[in-house]
Structure formats: structure tokens, C-alpha cells
Design a protein around this nucleic acid. Structure first.
Lengths: 197, 197
DNA sequence: GAGATCATATGATTAGGATCATAAAAGCGG
DNA sequence: CCGCTTTTATGATCCTAATCATATGATCTC
């Protein structure tokens, strides 16, 4: 997370998006840096038969879409507002200028990328080879970890079964059955349809 | 890739590994930065029933294992020498010192992470939802792209079917059948058992 | 060149998640 | 509160990759 004033000093614009709006699409060139001021943004892909895969969900203070900006490649996914959102937007030039004049911030960004890479490394190995229950537990544990929640069943998962399915590459029905089975095994709790871990 | 002299000036050691040696293991703390002087290193996971998943294969000039170093987390995978290899090794402190005194190099590393993130984003979405043939084509295309090969069937894939399986999370038999089917469809060629794309 | 090891190949069977169908509960807008 | 949409739930069936078994073709070593 980059300090708001620093962003504004480097020419950041505040841009608002309504729920459902797309900020950019898969295959487009990366032109801007984004950091969320309010709301939630997801990055996702749709495969040929319309099935969604969610790469990640980002909320206040988090930035997203930097990799293509830094690596000079096209966006590998779409960005879509999950709720009405406001974001700080910098052009690529402004962003690179900010990085070069603030080594501290640059290192912070590098760390952020490193963390995301760590997460993706885990997800890709989990998704590739494990059973549904495994995948689901792992992603929940990751989200719990990100939200810095400690203690058994202290973390309330704020995702629908469908979103959980889209994050793990499974089907809703499979997620529903798997979460129930996990509850039976004591791995998680379901109260008022919400999953606790 | 960081200049060899720069690495040595910052106290890099040359360390040799024999084929099959492990440089580090999943779950260990990240202590060093590594860049390959010669040979090939793979990063992999083994799931509970021993099935391997290859996160990536790195060769001369490439670095690996930086994310945990920068993100202060444990290694998400093992590193193992595919062939006899020599690597430059820097301690974490030396590496961070190098970055802070060489913004150019720092930006280069950031770009490298960004590229890898891009690749993982593609792989995770592909693996999550696509059929075997899709997965295989995508990873071959990626490798071809990395090696900067252009032209139909100009790229010779230097992986065994088993390695291809471990990279995509499939089984050998499935990979064998899928590559044959892809050959029949004209998507790739198989000559002397080697895959060309 | 014989034997051993590794990689590719192929058929038969199984298993588990996807798919399809339908329903009921919860949340929401007017 | 009522109708409408979204989300969760559950059973039945299908399909395809995993699994198991076995064979053959390369490559390597002594």
C-alpha cells in the first residue's frame, strides 16, 4: 500500500467504478497503476464456455495489475468491480517515476509481488493435484492468513460458494458438498450458511 | 540476470551441486539468493502420495527462490538440481544490499517477479479449468515464448512426458495420449519421440 | 552386445467431479 | 408482506482422467 499523499503528489487521479464495471480486460496493454481507495475489485478469467476463474480479490489499500505494467506484457485477466469502488490511478510513467524516486516504496512493491507469487505458487500446486477438500481448505487458510485472523473458527469467510468455486476451479455443487463434508470432519464450521475457519 | 562481477563484488560464493541434490526444501526459511552459473534447477512440490508438481525449471543466468527472501515467508517448494550445477549464492543481507545500491538491478528483479507472476496467473487459470490438451499446449507455448522461438514446429520441447505431466498436474499416460491426439490435430509434431511446436 | 534402466505406448477398468434437474431457504426491493 | 432473485442444497447420471497392468522401444553401462 502506497501512501495516499505520495500517490496524489505523483499525479494520481481518483476514478470511480460502479459494481460490475470492468477496469481493464484480458489481452489489453497495461497502461495504469491502480490502488483501491474504497470498494472491492476482482481479477478474473472466463474460459471458452464462460466459466469464471477468479485470480484474486483486492480491497482497500491494495494495488493490483502491476505485473503487466512492469513486465511489459498484456493483461492476463480482467479486472471488475465487485462493489462500487474508487481507485487511485497513475499512468505507467508516473508510477515508474514514483518507484525510482522512492526506493522504499519500490521495495514494498517488490515485496508485494513476492507475496503474491508465493500465494500463486501454493495455489497452482494445490489446484493441480489435490482433491476438492484440500483446495478449499488451502484457499480459506490463505485468506484467513491474509486477514491476519488467529484462532479456531475465528475467521468468517465472506465469499459465496460460487466465488469459492471460481477461486479453486471447482463447481458450486462440489464446493457445497465438500464444505459440508469438511464441517462433518470438524475442519470448519457452518453457521447461518457462512463458513468459519 | 545479474552481472556476474556485480554478484562477486557483493560477496557471492560459487557453490556446486550434483544432479539430484536439493538446494532447499519446502517449509524452510529463505536464507540465500541464487543465480545459476551452469546447469539446471527445478522447483517442485510433492503431495502426500508422492506425486510431483514442478513449479518451474531454471537454467543458466536465471535466479530463483527470491520471493520468499523478499516476502519473509517459508519456501513454498523444494529446489533440486536436474543436472550437475553451479550457482552464485548471496546471503539475504548481501542481496538486499545489492538491491539498494543498484536501483537498476532492483528494477530488473521486480520485472522478473512480474513476469513470473504473469506466467503463474496464466497457468493457474489454465490448470484450474481446462482440458489436458489445453493445458499442455499452453505450457508448451509459454516455454516456446520464453525461449524466444518463432515459427511453426520450430520449437523442440526438451522435456520428458513425465516432466510435462508434472508441470501441468496431469498423469504421464494422459500426457502421452493428449500429445498424440494433438499431433493428429496438427497442433504439434512428434519426431523421434520429441515434441515440436 | 547383453543386460539394465528409463521413456513411451496402449488397453481395460475405476472413480470422482461435472453436469443436469429440481427444490427450498435466504435476502432484497417496492 | 409479497414476489423475485440469489444462494444453498441434494439426488441421479455421465464422462473423462486416473489408475492398473503390461509391453515395447530407447539409451546407457560395463
Amino acid at each position: 500500500m502506497i501512501d495516499e499523499n505520495l500517490l496524489l503528489n505523483h499525479g494520481a487521479k481518483r476514478v470511480t467504478f460502479s459494481k460490475g464495471d470492468q477496469l481493464f480486460r484480458e489481452g489489453e496493454s497495461a497502461l495504469n497503476f491502480y490502488q483501491i481507495a474504497s470498494g472491492e475489485i476482482k481479477m478474473n478469467n472466463y474460459n471458452e464456455d464462460g466459466k469464471e476463474f477468479i485470480q484474486g480479490i483486492f480491497s482497500i489499500g491494495q494495488s493490483f495489475g502491476e505485473p503487466p505494467l512492469l513486465a511489459n506484457v498484456k493483461y492476463p485477466a480482467n479486472a471488475e468491480a465487485i462493489s462500487d469502488s474508487e481507485v487511485f490511478q497513475l499512468t505507467k510513467e508516473q508510477f515508474l517515476e514514483l518507484l525510482s524516486s522512492n526506493p522504499r516504496v519500490h521495495l514494498k512493491i517488490t515485496e508485494t509481488l513476492a507475496k503474491r507469487l508465493y500465494y500463486k505458487a501454493i495455489m497452482v500446486s494445490e489446484i493441480s493435484s489435490q482433491e476438492p477438500e484440500h483446495r478449499i481448505l488451502r484457499i480459506i487458510d490463505y485468506l484467513k492468513h491474509v486477514d491476519k485472523v488467529e484462532g479456531q473458527f475465528a475467521y468468517r469467510l465472506d465469499l459465496t460458494r460460487q466465488q469459492l468455486a471460481d477461486l479453486t476451479g471447482l463447481r458450486v455443487e462440489t464446493v457445497i458438498r465438500a464444505t459440508k463434508s469438511l464441517e462433518k470432519k470438524g475442519e470448519l464450521q457452518i453457521k447461518k450458511r457462512k463458513v468459519y475457519r
